[in-house]
Amino acid sequence: MSHTSKWKWTTILTIATPAVLALTVLFYVIVMDIERQTVILGTPDPIDPTAQFKPVAYVGVVSRYPPTIMYRGYQPIMDYLTANTPYRFELVLGKDYQEALRLLLSRRVSAVFLGSYQYVRAHTEHRIVPVLKPLNEYRQPLSRSVLFVRSSSSMRAVADLAGKTLALPSSESFSAHWPIDELFAQQKMSANDLARVHNFAHHHTVIAQVMNGSFEAGVTREYLVRDLLGKEIRAIAFSDPIPSSPLVALADHHTEIIRAMTEALLRVNQDERTRLELTQHWDAEFVNGFVTANDADYEIIRRMTQPARRKTTP
């Protein structure tokens, strides 16, 4: 090796080695510095600052789901009412039918969302009236209950339920009474023919119990399983259409609030495009809007739900 090349080697190595080491250290420092500035990953709806100055009106609902789920479905309705009435609407959850009814009767809430069967029962004992009832996707104020099984189930008819297990929602719901009081009677069956019948507090629990295989069949509201029908689950039978679950109020109380609520909610389905945008986060039961309700609409339920002998576990 010539003197020149030796000099170049020495010089280049003298420069290159510390440079590579310095670069390595620099890279290490940069890589290990993971500090990141605040990143906003989502922006929720803005809060109306004027709402806090409005008088508060409370609306009750039977808590069929965990509180957060209930709020996700009902709070947008409260927000809509707050924005379109002189009142700030707040949701009050009743853990069951009795508590929801107590809230109304104690006048803590101005109105309460009840199930159809619950209303029929309450109406017989208290002076409450239906104010509004929601529309289904066919623009009719009707709903159905459905008896369903998993798609993989061998059951094809109601008679196949003999010896099987059945999950039902709260005994205070129409879906819990329809199979026992009407469906089984038509098939000359009774709850005693089943291996087990159990009432769960919430509809979504019934769906989950059937889906995870704990129960072989279940009954719930049709709109709750519409997206699953024909896929994970299969319908065995549907009830006749019944009046949809009403918003009820005391006959002579909070009339101004009830009137404001009624007017606002009846406007929901006046314009189709506005309705779709407005109700996209609402509970699925109410996305099609409302019509006015009266007690005569619920006579059919009174006829369908005759007492029957049942074998249930608490």
Partner: peptide
């Protein structure tokens, strides 16, 4: 982060 209560989900590494 006094303003973050009205903002969306925020994240930082520090």
């Amino acid at each position: 982060r006094p303003r973050l209560s009205s903002d969306g989900l925020a994240l930082r590494i520090t």
